[in-house]
Design a binder for these strands. Structure first.
Length: 637
DNA sequence: TTAGGGTTAG
């Protein structure tokens, strides 16, 4: 076939059926390639002609009817195969049948061949709603949001009414580009054409607003909907979970159940992921029991979500149990388990899993290496980390990106090898971002390297970081050195850039309920008991040798006041409540939104011995398991 | 000839 289409002269030695002589326009388009007019290309074609002619005898397109064409299109496994069927369709002149042409368009988009699909679309004589929606949806699914919206606009301008296929596709493009302005415009259009109450459109609208960070607008829309289906509930739950509001996500799920709506597997994945964000082990077990009770199969997606949930709720053992039970595992499941070990400081276990993954025929990807390097970093495995870092490109053809460099700088920096970290950064070709400089600055804090800290901070501040954490880090470094004027300057810079320090909070799960504490919080109904417990605890702890480490208080105030600040840190209030509300011997499990403070870390270690309690803290970076006076992080965090 | 669609894991 190819020979007939590309050969400039009549083929020799065979009779061509008349249909091959008059090449239809679409078939000509098929043979077009951008470089076909280049001289070397023409020469090459001449040389290839004989072989291709022979081949074409075998591969000559056979006539095909409409039904067989649709069946053949749906069974295409490769783009080459698809192009052969396309040629058959062209030769049989059934491209004029809309269902065939549209199916062809659709299958091209499914193979990610959007240029081919678009080429065909442009030459199609008759384009109906399906052709348009295939193109709008095709560009969207391929991640080409711009062309998705261009097609949508063309569709609307062609005088067609936006429908329940094209509107959700266009809204998804807005969601994926976080363009709530465009999303709002499309919302108005949906209202204008009376499509806003359609279930597909309204689910897409709720999803778009929520994922663009406008959860309140999403909820208003959700509450005002005349009808809701499972997907609408699911996207709203997901909106809360993704918006870092897992409490509302889980509350909405409970409400959904109360209203008699039965969740499906996708809803459960969303709920499990909300639970992972929350970090409450009791709740995690309840959700897992629900999944088992309702007999949802733990397939690769739900199973992986459950692994991640248990890991982030503090039980790496439960995560491993689920991992072992899963029949099908992909690279995401393996990476989730490696990451689970990593955040719990079990570097050895994480690294042991890597070769097992390979033995199971699963190849690592970029994220697997981030999980591995993270595990090395939090277990102090410098040499191992370095080996993995260099093996990425060499053995797996995965070029390290800025995140991998950040992990590596973290590994070297924490281990005190600041010079090596700098060297690595000097030699990198990928663009440096604030996270990378932040990692180096963190290392400067740990090893008190004032001069490098200043240089690093200069580069960091030049990038204009949006994360208040980096300013606080720098301010901490100055405060530790007693440079209060510089502390004030950093604070001023933060204010001028419109940033505020993220307030620290800790919550603790008691009897399946979470209780949240801020610094100096007195809002809890049992506040009196909590503060009384804190006073008796501090006496006991000081007798056992605890000395408040006032270096962690950064206000320029006297020592006595500093100690008072320390005692009302949210971590300590949560611990005190844990002691008040749970029987002796029960583990105390907490989640903190920021990194645990150094003084609270010391406090937890001592408390685990004095009170004979296991204390588990998830902070913004990792888990700390305190037991009998020491922490699983080995004071290395 | 009735094709195309909204939600999910590290």
């Amino acid at each position: 076939m190819l020979c007939v289409l590309i050969s400039p002269k009549p083929a020799r030695g065979r009779n061509l059926a008349p249909r091959f002589l008059s090449t239809p326009p679409a078939a000509a388009a098929l043979a077009t390639s951008p470089d076909q007019h280049l001289p070397w290309r023409a020469e090459q074609q001449q040389q290839l002609a004989t072989t291709e002619e022979l081949r074409s005898e075998v591969a000559r397109p056979a006539p095909i009817d409409t039904n067989s064409a649709i069946f053949a299109l749906l069974s295409c496994r490769s783009l080459a195969q698809l192009k052969r069927v396309h040629a058959q369709v062209v030769c049989t002149a059934i491209l004029a049948v809309p269902s065939v042409a549209n199916k062809l368009l659709y299958v091209y988009t499914r193979h990610g061949a959007l240029a081919d699909a678009h080429g065909l679309f442009r030459t199609m004589g008759e384009r109906d709603k399906v052709s348009w929606s295939v193109m709008v949806g095709g560009f969207g699914k391929a991640g080409d949001h711009r062309n998705c919206l261009v097609m949508f606009r063309e569709f609307v301008r062609s005088g067609s009414r936006a429908d329940s296929y094209t509107l959700p596709a266009a809204l998804r493009a807005c969601r994926d580009t976080s363009d709530s302005n465009m999303g709002g415009t499309i919302h108005q259009l949906a209202c204008k054409v009376g499509m806003d109450a359609d279930l597909f459109v309204s689910a897409a609208l709720v999803n778009m607003y929520a994922r663009c960070g406008l959860v309140v607008d999403a909820r208003k829309l959700f509450d005002g909907m005349p009808a809701r289906d499972l997907v609408t509930w699911t996207v709203m739950i997901d909106g809360y979970a993704e918006g870092e509001n897992p409490v509302d996500a889980l509350a909405l799920f409970d409400r959904m159940l109360l209203q008699g709506v039965r969740p499906d597997k996708v809803t459960m994945v969303t709920v499990v992921s909300a639970c992972a964000k929350l970090g409450a082990l009791h709740k995690a077990k309840t959700v897992h029991d629900y999944i088992l009770g309702k007999k949802f199969p733990l397939d690769v997606i739900l199973g992986t979500a459950v692994i991640d949930m248990y890991a982030k709720c503090g039980s790496v053992d439960a995560a491993r149990e689920v991992f072992d039970q899963m029949k099908e595992k992909n690279v995401i499941s393996w990476s989730a388990m490696i990451s689970a070990y990593g955040i719990h400081g079990c570097g050895k276990e994480a690294l042991e899993l890597f070769p097992v993954m390979l033995q199971n025929g699963v190849l690592p990807n970029q994220i697997t290496f981030i999980s591995i390097l993270y595990a090395c970093s939090h277990a102090g495995l410098v040499d191992e980390g370095r080996q993995f870092f260099y093996s990425m490109a060499r053995d797996y053809n995965i070029e390290p990106d800025v995140k991998h460099y950040t992990c590596m700088v973290d590994i070297l920096g924490r281990a005190g090898r600041l010079g090596e970290a700098m060297e690595l950064m000097d030699g990198m070709t990928v663009e440096k971002d604030e996270g990378l400089w932040g990692a180096l600055l963190g290392a400067c804090r740990i090893h008190r390297d004032m001069s490098l800290a200043e240089k690093t901070a200069a580069s960091l501040l030049e990038l204009g970081p949006k994360n208040p954490g980096y300013y606080v880090l720098l301010s901490n470094i100055y405060a530790n050195a007693g440079r209060w004027e510089d502390v004030a300057k950093v604070r001023e810079l933060m204010t001028s850039r419109g940033l505020k320090k993220t307030p620290g909070w800790t919550w603790i799960e008691i009897n399946s309920e979470t209780h949240r504490f801020n610094v100096g919080d007195k809002a809890h109904p049992q506040a009196a008991q909590i503060y009384q417990m804190l006073r008796s605890l501090s006496r006991k702890m000081e007798l056992a040798g605890y000395v408040p480490d006032t270096n962690f208080v950064l206000h320029d105030v006297d020592e006595e006041l500093k100690a008072e600040f320390l005692y009302t840190h949210s971590e300590k209030l949560a611990i005190a409540y844990g002691l008040v509300a749970t029987p002796q011997g029960t583990a105390i499990r907490m989640v903190k939104n920021l990194r645990i403070c150094g003084d609270c870390h010391t406090f937890c270690k001592l408390l685990s011995a004095v009170e004979q309690r296991e204390v588990v803290v998830r902070d913004a970076n990792r888990f700390h398991h305190f037991k009998e006076g020491s922490c699983s992080c080995g004071d290395y965090w």
